[in-house]
Simulated scan of single mutants.
Amino acid sequence: MSDKQPAAPTTPYGSPAGPHRPFEPTGVIHDIGYRHYDGVRAGRGHAVMALIAHSLRGVFGLGRTARSKIIPFLLVGVMLLPAVVSIAIMALAKREMMSYTSYAVTMQTVLAIFLASQSPYAVAPDLRFRVLPLYLSRPVTSADYVGAKLAAMTAAMFLLLAVPLTVLFAGELIVDLPGPPHTAGYLTSMAGAVVYALLLACLGVAIASFTPRRGLGVASIIAFYLLTSAVSTAVAAMMEEVNNYTAAGWAWMINPFFLVDAAVQVGIFDAKPSAPTVYPGGTGVAAAILLVIGLIALSVTALILRYRKAASR
């Protein structure tokens, strides 16, 4: 006979069974209240619209901290200031003080600062904290994401420019200057505002998307604006010194603000140029329009490729 004692029975978890612990698991399933969603699924389009609304609110600091609202609303006030002053002068002097079609070029520095300060917010946090896969885990595609961000930034830039123009036009109607109101100039400037907003938003978001750091995005956009502005001014001045005004007109279009002015407001609607020199006509207008379209297409393509690569990580 063997002296070994039989091993004590145990549960599947390794503890002794005992008289009150049978051979069965002791886990308990708790009902913590999760419920299935039985409502209507809004779908992909609703998700994209929600992303646009969220991004647009964020550009103006809505739904964010009070500090985030300072820069956008301060710049909105600066953009409105020339319109308000012009209305006051029109009421006193009874004459037009500021051209509608030159408003964007005159205020280009403010528009560039707004673009530089707010474009990185639209894209940088999602890249920095790597939450892009969460957006794309739903029916939203990378093209939808890019389109939503561009739509939000375009809408913000359009509002920043269209509101002062509308205030200025309303002031002109209220003051009732001698002669008919400058309706054609206002409508031309609004058409230009659409193209200004689209081109600037595409360029700004595309530049900002290549770095997850907001500070670097701001610096990159400011550097792009300063470079194009300085180069266009310097080259145009040199061409005017040698009396080559045709080349000077081409040089002004290195700056995106003068490019839109030449392509849309002057080239299509025959407005007065905002640059000191007349832009090249004929093929120059066609070239300016194609350049605007090409810059928009290049920016959108770069964004789509950038976010496809980011989503695959």
Rank of each mutant, 00 (worst) to 15 (best):
P19A: 08
P25C: 09
A155D: 10
S86A: 11
W250T: 04
L187W: 11
L160D: 04
T301K: 09
A170N: 08
A223C: 01
V175K: 01
T188G: 07
L134D: 12
L226G: 02
A262G: 03
A143P: 08
M79C: 07
T101F: 03
G77M: 03
H54M: 09
I296R: 00
Q265G: 01
F169H: 02
M157V: 11
R308E: 06
A42R: 08
A237P: 03
P16I: 08
V231G: 02
A47K: 10
G267H: 09
F129K: 03
G204A: 11
T26Y: 15
A263R: 00
L199P: 10
L74F: 15
A7E: 14
L200P: 01
P22T: 13
G58F: 12
I289V: 14
L303H: 08
L160S: 03
H182C: 00
Y186W: 13
A53Q: 13
S189L: 02
A170I: 15
S68H: 11
G171E: 01
N244V: 06
L150Y: 10
S68M: 12
T166P: 07
I113H: 02
Y34V: 08
A53G: 09
A143T: 15
T65C: 04
K149I: 01
V76R: 00
N255L: 03
S102W: 01
L75S: 12
V218F: 03
L173N: 05
G281E: 14
N243L: 11
I293A: 15
Q108M: 10
I293C: 10
G267P: 04
V300H: 02
I254N: 03
R41C: 02
L305G: 06
R128M: 11
V242Y: 02
R57F: 14
T188N: 09
T65R: 13
M157L: 14
D3M: 15
G215F: 01
M98V: 13
V110C: 07
F129E: 08
K94T: 06
L173Y: 07
A237F: 15
S68P: 00
P139N: 04
V110W: 05
S209M: 04
L132S: 03
T188S: 09
Q5H: 10
L81Q: 09
T154K: 06
A247K: 06
A17S: 11
E240H: 08
A206S: 07
L127A: 04
V278N: 11
V40H: 05
V242K: 05
A50W: 11
T11Y: 03
P133I: 03
I113M: 07
L187D: 00
L134Q: 12
A93W: 08
R67S: 15
L56A: 10
H30Y: 14
L75V: 15
A302T: 14
V40T: 08
A236S: 05
A50T: 14
L200Y: 05
P276R: 07
V84W: 12
A112G: 02
G249A: 05
G282I: 14
G267I: 13
E240T: 14
T11A: 08
V175L: 05
M90S: 01
V40F: 10
L259V: 10
L199E: 07
R138E: 02
T183F: 15
